[in-house]
Simulated scan of single mutants.
Amino acid sequence: MSIPYAMINAYGDGPFTGNPAAVLVIEQDQLRDPQLQQIAAEMNVSETAFIYRGATNNQFQLRWFTPQVEVNLCGHATLASAHYLYHFGIVPTDITIHFHTLSGELVVSLHDGVLRMRLPQESPVACSAPSDLITALGVIPRAVSKNRMDYIVELADEQDVRQLQVEFSLIAGLDARGVVVTSRADDPSIDIVCRTFYPRIGIDEDPVTGSAFCALAPYWMKRLRNNTILKVVQLSIRGGSATLMLEDEIVIQEGSCFVWAEGSLHI
């Protein structure tokens, strides 16, 4: 069996930037779940996306796997999946794509060459910081919140976020998918910065995390009351950026993607 695939950098505009996702378009029942997990482990990037063809040319089922587990929500691999469908001509560029996922229907469209993705808000609520979280980060947070997925930790400034060295084993033991660390940006053309850590699901530090932006957008909009649009930069080694907006219970994310490899899997 030969299955085409592409490696796509999401929230980046060239090779070696953004967050890489492997994307495959498959038929229903073509592969069993254990095979999907094996492929994701073999790809060994933070997420492998499997797109199932639907009844119409713009309706698809979408699933995401880390090298270790299937996840409920992944922003960068959704953006990459839409880019795959547009780039390879599976969906015309003037058509909106609807993905049916474990987090409901996710919608992506293309505007002047920029992908615009609509994901659910994941607003965090203020909480007490577990002692292991403080120990793992080695700094005193300005504020700690939590949503259904992650701890959101605000630090004093961008330098604290950049210099952070974490104990992954302690983060993996927390009662959360992972930890999102954030602060205001030093650069006045950027609003906020962040880094994200997910050792519990096999990703020590994620390059760029769309699902984390679903928490950061409502979190920072409340604090930056004059802002209706946020520019976020993720300070991973690879780096990446997005523009965020809120609409009702939706976080609109705009970002770019780049196809840096393509080929076929032989199973």
Rank of each mutant, 00 (worst) to 15 (best):
N44M: 12
S131C: 11
Q59I: 03
A41W: 14
F88W: 08
T56Y: 11
A55G: 12
H98R: 02
Q37K: 07
G104P: 11
H98D: 12
R142G: 00
N72L: 14
A82K: 01
G54W: 13
S109R: 14
Y84P: 14
T66G: 12
G138S: 10
R116G: 08
I97M: 00
T48G: 11
V107C: 05
R53V: 14
V108D: 08
L137K: 02
C74R: 09
L133H: 06
Q121F: 07
Q59E: 12
V125D: 11
I39F: 07
D112Y: 10
L119F: 06
V108Y: 12
A136H: 07
V114I: 13
S109T: 15
S46I: 05
A80Y: 13
V114M: 13
T96Q: 02
F88Y: 15
L85K: 01
P141H: 02
A40R: 08
G113H: 11
D33K: 03
L85Q: 01
W64G: 09
P130R: 02
L110V: 08
I134D: 09
L36W: 12
G104R: 01
N72S: 10
H100C: 03
T56G: 04
V107F: 01
Q68E: 13
G54Q: 02
M43V: 15
N72I: 10
P130A: 05
I39T: 08
F65N: 06
V45T: 12
S109P: 05
S81A: 14
L133D: 09
T101W: 11
T56P: 04
G138R: 03
A82Y: 06
G54M: 05
L73S: 13
V114Q: 08
P67I: 10
D112N: 10
L62S: 06
G75Y: 04
E105R: 00
V71Q: 13
T78H: 02
G138W: 06
D33E: 10
A40G: 07
A55S: 14
S46D: 07
Q121P: 03
P120H: 00
L110D: 05
E105H: 00
L36D: 06
V139T: 01
V108M: 01
A129E: 03
M43P: 15
Y52S: 02
P67Y: 11
T78Y: 08
I51H: 04
P34V: 07
A49Q: 12
V45S: 09
T48M: 04
L119A: 12
A126V: 04
